[in-house]
Design a protein around this nucleic acid. Structure first.
Lengths: 178, 178
DNA sequence: ACCAAATACTTTATCTATGAAATATTTCTG
DNA sequence: CAGAAATATTTCATAGATAAAGTATTTGGT
């Protein structure tokens, strides 16, 4: 019942001393752990491994971060702009977080705030020309990186995984409870 | 080619105003997006939804957080204690992060540092009696919560998902590249 | 035995993110 | 139409996380 590679410690970060290290510590999983728990731990690990790689690639390739990229990706899909609350919902993070991210991206000249004439509480956030140009560059690489991460899976496996995650996502989101 | 529930905006946080909101914003996915990209986005969303729920449950039930719980979970599996570097590898986070988490848990009296007589640079981190008692309480609920989150999946679906994530995890971790 | 390299951990600056409270505006209800 | 409730956003305090640099100790090669 040992799950020998949870926490198998790929270096997610750069090459500094205290980054996540290479060799595997001995891994113990709770004996008889339920398949649901194992699945959750595996999902967590996959997420960590993949996010870590993408983060490194975005940092070394474009000196940016995943949250910034994700925010820009949403804006790219909505050229008419999105309100803060929409960004908050789409990215599934709190409003305060969006405020900070937006502030930084505005400062970098990649996005801009535009008043909503019909609601003085709100405004639209849009990519600037500079932001759009940069995003399009990044998006190409980002997609390549994601494809490369999954190239360890057979086409059929990937399709099956995608389908199962799609179902899980839909059913989780459709719940009444939080 | 629309993936109608990425970012389907379940409230991950508490019930305050700026938490993630309930209703779906219109969702657009890049046309013709590669199955790998869709899979990655779905994995991201599942992760967010599930992590958000667990966070809420740990907070309201035990006034603690997922990173603290995860650290304690590792220590529970290694009663002889773990070094900082082992925690860093197992949790796949940087050493600096572990330092901070450990400081807080020590302050709460849930874990303790024990000198390693053979290496004066290092020490072992262990659960205290109080920490172990609390963890055992939390673990029961944590497992229930995880099982409940997956109860939207058939047994066969879950087994398949677990298997596919296990393969993905292993293959990602086995790579030479970061 | 020496000294360079590696290792274990901490510190610092910065960013990401939360949860709660505050402000301003709009909408709803009676 | 007035006032209450809801909504959109920001602010604040704090936690979590990274990357990079710093300190102390151990290891390993000559």
């Amino acid at each position: 019942m040992i799950d020998s590679s949870v926490g198998s410690a790929i270096p997610l970060a750069g090459d500094m001393d205290n980054s996540i290290q290479r060799d595997n510590p001995i891994q113990r999983l709770p004996a008889g752990s339920h398949v649901a728990l194992r699945t959750w731990l595996r999902l967590l690990t996959c997420h960590r491994l993949m996010e870590g790689r993408l983060r490194n690639q975005l940092r070394t390739g474009f000196e940016t971060t995943l949250p910034r990229f994700d925010l820009m990706a949403q804006l790219d899909r909505y050229p008419e702009g999105l309100k803060m609350r929409d960004l908050s919902r789409l990215l599934m993070v709190t409003g305060g977080n969006i405020t900070g991210l937006t502030d930084r991206l505005v400062e970098e000249g990649l996005i801009e705030r535009r008043d909503d004439p019909t609601d003085r509480r709100a405004y639209y956030v849009c990519l600037t020309a500079k932001g759009k140009a940069l995003f399009e560059q990044m998006a190409v690489h980002h997609e390549e990186w994601v494809i490369a991460m999954f190239d360890c899976m057979e086409e059929g496996e990937l399709a099956q995984l995608s389908e199962l995650l799609g179902r899980l996502k839909r059913r989780l989101a459709d719940r009444i409870d939080s």
